Computed example of a mutant assay.
Amino acid sequence: MADSLKIIFTGVGRGLKDSVVGTFKIYNIDKDLSEKSQQQQSEQRRTVLSMRREERQKADQLTGKGEPKKNSEPSVRNRILVCCAWNGGVFGLSIFMFNRAVLPCLQFLIHYFTGGTAATIWHWMGPLLTWTFSALWIIPIFILSKIVNALWFQDIADAAYRKSRGRPLLPSLQMLIADLLFSIILESVFLIQGMLAKRLLPIPGIGDLVSILHMCLLYSLYSFEYKWFNMNWPLQKRVAYIENNWPYFVGFGLPLAIMTSMADSFVISGCVFSLFFPLFIISANEAGHIHEIHDMPLMLFTPAAKVTNQLFPKLSRRATPSSGHTTPSSGHSTPAGTPKKQLHIR
């Protein structure tokens, strides 16, 4: 029992450390990418064909004044700064200013000019202004942010992956689409599962603990999914790996789960998530090996996987590789003949 608790707390502590320390790796990513690009260019110069290609590229880069064009591709840090500026500066700050500045000022002006009838007027005017602001600003910006963030998150993850591991190993287009759709459905069902656990468990405090546990694992899956997808890991293998190493991933997703749970609304929680999530993508990409597999897997994804399989059986079959992987309903999958001990991050 003592050894099991030691393994759990050690795994949680290591995951927490990797999630925080890994965010500081953004200062080295752009430098490493630049050095790697220069090294590849120096290797290409060894052939006559590459030398001619380089001369043509130099000629094409010259403008009318004879000055070379600058590389317009933004750095990883610039991508993260733009993402944070949009989610925190535009989206989050606008909500904060409306609730903390605009509404109180309007309420004060109404009370100043109307006197005794201010409470009656504000009783219907306050909710009307909030609803109008939500309909005309929050909802459209929230939907736009989801689309833009998806592109930015993928861009950040791909740049970080190229720095550490090179070219992604992507599956076929059909498998890619099926895996993406099945992953979205499974994660949505898992999110609902965590919300139901919080509401339905009768013991005080246990429901909140189980809900936080769900969110930690889900945020860890979100963070590592970009890396594992580029490594061509199928969804079944990704979920099984988290279930077998759940102490580490509970610790990794704990900071983001706590920050989002402190928000008083779903929209604010989504804004906080989008603000800090790019840093966790970097941390997940830079995370080291997980050498120990926990002997007692926490199979929280298995009920959600079974529900998803029952609802979308054809999609689950398309998302399951044919090279000896088990079905996702079991919640575990390893390549044929490969023991679980070999499922470490490479």
Rank of each mutant, 00 (worst) to 15 (best):
V90L: 15
V90C: 07
V90K: 11
V90G: 05
F91W: 14
G92F: 11
L93M: 12
L93K: 11
L93T: 10
S94G: 12
S94T: 11
I95K: 13
F96V: 09
F96R: 14
M97E: 14
M97N: 07
M97H: 14
M97D: 15
M97S: 15
R100N: 14
A101T: 14
A101C: 04
A101S: 13
V102L: 08
L103H: 06
L103V: 09
C105K: 11
C105N: 10
C105R: 12
L106K: 00
L106T: 03
L106W: 05
Q107S: 01
Q107N: 04
Q107K: 07
Q107C: 12
Q107G: 06
F108Q: 00
F108R: 05
F108N: 12
F108H: 12
F108E: 11
L109H: 09
L109V: 13
L109T: 06
L109E: 05
I110H: 05
I110G: 06
I110R: 12
I110P: 09
H111I: 03
H111F: 10
H111G: 12
H111C: 08
Y112P: 01
Y112R: 05
F113M: 06
T114Y: 13
T114E: 12
G115I: 04
G115D: 10
G115M: 03
G115H: 07
G115E: 11
G116I: 02
T117A: 09
A118Q: 13
A118E: 13
A119K: 10
A119M: 13
A119D: 15
A119T: 07
T120N: 05
T120R: 13
T120P: 07
I121K: 07
I121Q: 07
W122A: 03
W122G: 04
H123E: 14
H123S: 07
W124N: 02
M125T: 06
G126N: 13
G126V: 01
G126S: 11
P127K: 00
L128R: 02
L128D: 06
L129E: 07
L129M: 11
W131D: 07
T132M: 11
T132H: 02
F133N: 01
S134Y: 06
A135W: 02
A135D: 01
L136V: 01
L136S: 10
W137L: 08
W137H: 05
W137C: 07
W137R: 12
W137E: 01
I138F: 15
I139S: 11
I139D: 11
I139V: 15
P140Q: 04
P140V: 05
I141W: 15
I141D: 08
I141P: 13
F142Y: 11
F142C: 00
F142E: 09
F142M: 09
F142G: 00
F142A: 00
I143L: 15
I143D: 15
I143V: 12
L144D: 00
S145L: 06
